[in-house]
Design a protein around this nucleic acid. Structure first.
Lengths: 127, 127, 127, 127
DNA sequence: GTGGTCTAGACCACG
DNA sequence: GTGGTCTAGACCACA
């Protein structure tokens, strides 16, 4: 289902959140699609149900998915997030950190831009 | 000295590491410059010396600074950034996460690129 | 578990690092084996947990062990020793120091070589 | 005079002790030779006199050099050290640590032996 | 004065 | 339960 790396330093529940969002952007998951239940997904991925629960809660908070009583969990129909300045700030900070890292490794600006363009292409799902 | 946000989720020692690197890239700290001593900086920033030491040790491991016995800590003179594929991978992951985040908020590719170019300009600093 | 000499001039955390590596080479610890948790080992050895953690972190940095979120610490499975020239240099320096020491004590080359061969045999362990 | 690396993790005074011994083994310093005075050497090497003092004291303790009242410091005429089991033990420990390190890096026994033979040749001064 | 190690004890995030 | 971070305070080796 989703690619999870338990050795990564980013929490598993965060990885799930990210994977779900990425899948939606790539069109693998579409608005209205039914998500697997917490228990189901936990068994499929052999991951602690609490972890899935946490991921779903976070996704719900971000209005990426919605729970419908008695029916299950679905990808939001109006899934597009809204411009959120506080979240933008966090993203910028993380970008900045990465850019400093690259510059420190002697990576030139051109290559940095190439890396980013490559990543953007990847997200589009044209790969 | 360095801007630290104790409420941030990123550890204080990591923030210090990042700030030092940024200061060097901006030319605020130059190769050969003496760093404040662990205790000194700890007092200046009202942070526990152990935390500063952890930051310094990490910076030393990354060859950003070097310690000279009994004399103190200095910004490395012979530092040559080495391309480190495993670290590159981490940076790419963090970029990807940010790009997904932005796309999710409906930010267009042009604006994303503008944000990144702005950040690159910021890092270049006053030089 | 591990033989530690608190009176030794080499730090406790370093001794632990060395002991773990030696145990692996001897086959006492095998790839994939679960390491005792930080607190557990700390209690077993009556050593402060912070000290154990420092040792584990160093071992992780050297890719001898790996931590899996919430599950614990394990001996790395995919560890492939990499030739590391800078570390080689340190080892050579320490060897040289030892060889000078021996020669100074009037130990002949043959005996020196015999000592080293004996040590190599010791490391091989029970396999 | 002596090669000292202030960035090294081994204390400067230890480095001096080692260098003196090595010089004697190589024949650069000979029994009966006059050693420079503490102050003299400190100025030559731009090192804190306390450090030289400590090195000399250690060398004297090991009977490598001897002080003659009013005349200065000299390389011992009967400079050969004696077999000292406790020091042997330390050397063995350091060797063992190095051998483990090498084995961990995947260095084969043959290469290890080659490295050691090379170092022995170096000490002889035939290089 | 410098940095290095260790302990004790606290709080937190993650699974 | 796991590891990660931080503080407070102590002792030590080195220059």
């Amino acid at each position: 289902m989703f690619n999870i790396n338990p050795r990564s330093s980013t929490p598993i529940y965060t990885q799930i959140v990210d994977e779900v969002k990425e899948s939606i952007l790539k069109g693998i998951l579409e608005p209205g699609d039914k998500m697997p239940s917490v228990r189901e997904l936990a068994k499929m991925m052999t991951i602690n149900p609490n972890t899935i629960q946490k991921a779903y809660k976070e996704l719900e908070r971000q209005m990426v998915i919605e729970k419908i009583r008695g029916k299950g969990t679905f990808v939001s129909t109006d899934y597009k997030g809204k411009r959120d300045e506080s979240r933008m700030k966090l993203v910028k900070e993380s970008f900045k950190k990465g850019l400093i890292e690259l510059k420190y490794m002697g990576i030139k600006e051109e290559e940095t831009m190439a890396i980013i363009k490559e990543l953007i292409r990847e997200i589009k799902g044209d790969e």
